[in-house]
């Protein structure tokens, strides 16, 4: 599904990704852990096409296509979805309007029919309550006045509606209480399928108890420095990242 080779990316003069390699086969869930500032969010932005970053070397192929050649919206239509670490508020754009515009834009880009109003409403009614998204939150501006946890759940609702092929979850667990974590994990697990891959960025083993990864990677200073099974997360919880700091030095 996703094949990243020797990826270098910078923002301004600051090189943040420094030769990153990562392969995620179809249907697998990969976790990335790593210290603050190691470049995890940067990787998620570069994959989703945020214009602020400049890729200076390397390649990213997504289902065989050159992902880096596409604009952010074309990547979304191709099936890349980023659940943001810090979802932003967009006052004046009603959540419902936004969700529908997003679905239709992606359908249009893929040459599909727009979704009808009744079908759209039915779909939202089927998915929103499970994630604890109320009617009021759907009517409000996107994320406006949402609590931290509500914003994260709204990200998962978008993911559930858009049904992407590659889900990138950037610290979706941070700011969630224990019950909300289960709700979100349940929502994510419901989307697991042999045709859908996931990249889960987190600092905590706790999330990985609920969303069990196939592979865990350690990211440090803009590179993947170690990969292993789900037990690697437990090991990191014990020992921290000190060992990698020495390796890299």
């Amino acid at each position: 599904m996703l094949e990243i080779r020797n990826l270098h990316a910078r923002i301004g003069e600051n090189e943040i990704l420094k030769g990153l390699d990562l392969t995620i086969p179809d249907g697998e869930v990969h976790a990335i852990m790593g210290p603050n500032g190691s470049g995890k969010s940067t990787l998620s932005y570069v994959l989703s096409g945020k214009p602020d970053y400049e890729v200076t070397d390397g390649s990213v192929s997504f289902d065989g296509a050159d992902l880096l050649a596409l604009d952010a919206d074309a990547r979304a239509a191709a099936g890349v979805f980023l659940a943001f670490q810090y979802p932003i508020e967009i006052p004046g754009v009603a959540n419902m309007t936004f969700l529908r515009a997003a679905m239709n834009a992606q359908r249009k880009a893929r040459g599909e029919e727009e979704i009808s109003t009744p079908d759209f409403l039915k779909l939202v009614r089927a998915k929103a309550p499970d994630l604890g998204i109320s009617q009021d939150m759907l009517r409000r501006g996107v994320n406006v006045g949402f609590s931290g946890g509500e914003k994260k759940r709204n990200e998962i609702l978008q993911m559930a509606l858009l049904e992407p092929k590659l889900c990138i979850l950037d610290e979706t667990d941070s700011g969630l209480d224990i019950d909300a974590l289960k709700v979100v994990a349940h929502g994510v697990n419901a989307l697991r399928s042999p045709k859908r891959s996931m990249l889960v960025i987190t600092h905590y083993q706790r999330l990985l108890d609920h969303i069990v990864p196939d592979v865990v990677h350690v990211m440090h200073k803009g590179r993947i420095v170690r990969s292993g099974g789900k037990e690697l997360a437990l090991e990191l919880e014990e020992s921290g990242y000190a060992a990698y700091a020495q390796d890299a030095a």
Partner: peptide, 20 residues
């Protein structure tokens, strides 16, 4: 960027924000 990352083309994303 948030809107575009959800699939809205640039002009459409701009339009939503201007309307807001």
């Amino acid at each position: 960027f948030y809107l575009r990352s959800r699939g809205l083309p640039e002009k459409e994303a701009e339009m939503l924000l201007i309307q807001a």
